[in-house]
Design a protein around this nucleic acid. Structure first.
Lengths: 212, 212
DNA sequence: GTCTATAAACGGATAGAC
DNA sequence: GTCTATCCGTTTATAGAC
């Protein structure tokens, strides 16, 4: 369930939660705050929690450690920043997926593999934090999953099938996020046509079960 | 694909690769080496890479840091220890799954959720290392996946369906490993009967596609 | 084989200049 | 808002006693 339906929109566009009134100019240059969250999420995703140190994040965001700590007073605050971003992106995604012309299920499967969208990055980063036993991160992931499951169930009306669809989506998401690039011949990187086949299979089974 | 088919067997039984000739006595007491690998894998799985420090591992294994470093000269060596253990356990599992009376696919799905077996622990630990961008760990996971996919394909003779089955297995494994316990009502912990339903669904679809 | 002590580097956070 | 300097606890690793 790593979606990139939002890629057409501004990649970041995660206005901070401070007092600043929203400016409806075109693509506002990323705030330092947003660049820092970006850098943190990316480091978490690329190299794991251990590599995502304040030093590394500051360097990647192009600020000093002191500069970073002006915006986020502690590492905990940085983590909260990522979680807030995820929540906003998931909310948007849920809206987008509901109104997908190809139907929610096909849309979900086709966008499950991580492709580097803002939502992908936030999800992967949050997943790393969850695995570092951060329970807030775990709750955030569960909330996102619940939302997606709800849409699929609503669409198919079939709990077992919905479960299977969600698990396939999870498998695609985790596999692409955790075992990127350079696959062996056997399980070689899933191609676009592999995904098409998968969607066809699901569509057939759905139709079959609907017509009991 | 987190299997616990081996739980009946000695939970550890990972004889070290040193010169000692194998002793075929009953359940040899765990060597210090094995206890250290256990502790490392468990800490990695429970609390993430950051928590799996030499200090913490030594304490959990009941030795001093110096004692630990006598057996594993560096953290890298410790990691290699976990990866070697995984390779051995996967090899055994592949043999076990091939000869499952309920059939390989049903066996795979039913044992995908992590339940704390030695193989589960080694897989989760390796997955953590893979996410910390350890490429050897990534290769090990891919190799295990290839082996399992091969068995499923052999069993169904249907590449697309096999892919779907593997993804469901992955979804079950990752979900149980990364978002343990206390689920929300919606996606509440999958029960035994949920898994039964899933196996039934897969069995039906497999039969349907086989009889084209 | 196992321990304590210690070195050297790193990570998070504060203080204060600009 | 951003920087440098610095403090202190942690982490990996070594040395050497038992």
């Amino acid at each position: 369930m790593l979606l990139d339906a939002l890629r057409a929109a501004s990649i970041e566009a995660m206005p901070d939660t401070s007092e600043k009134p929203p400016i409806d100019s075109v693509t506002p240059p990323l705030s330092t705050r947003d660049r820092i969250i970006d850098a943190f999420a990316e480091l978490l995703g690329e190299n794991g929690e251990r590599a995502a140190t304040l030093d590394a994040v500051a360097a990647a965001a192009g600020v000093s450690k002191g500069g970073l700590l002006y915006h986020f007073g502690s590492k905990e605050a940085l983590i909260e920043g990522v979680l807030e971003r995820l929540a906003t992106l998931v909310e948007r995604d849920v809206a987008a997926i509901r109104s997908s012309p190809s139907g929610p299920v096909a849309h979900l499967i086709r966008t499950s593999m991580a492709t580097g969208s803002a939502l992908d990055k936030a999800l992967v980063a949050t997943s790393r934090l969850a695995q570092a036993s951060n329970s807030t991160a775990r709750d955030a992931l569960r909330a996102a999953n619940d939302a997606w499951y709800g849409i699929v169930l609503e669409s198919t009306g079939d709990p077992v099938l919905s479960r299977a669809i969600m698990l396939i989506s999870d498998g695609l998401a985790y596999g692409s996020a955790f075992l990127p690039e350079s696959m062996t011949p056997d399980t070689a990187e899933l191609t676009r046509s592999d995904i098409d086949d998968l969607v066809d299979l699901i569509t057939e089974v759905t139709a079959q079960r609907a017509g009991h």
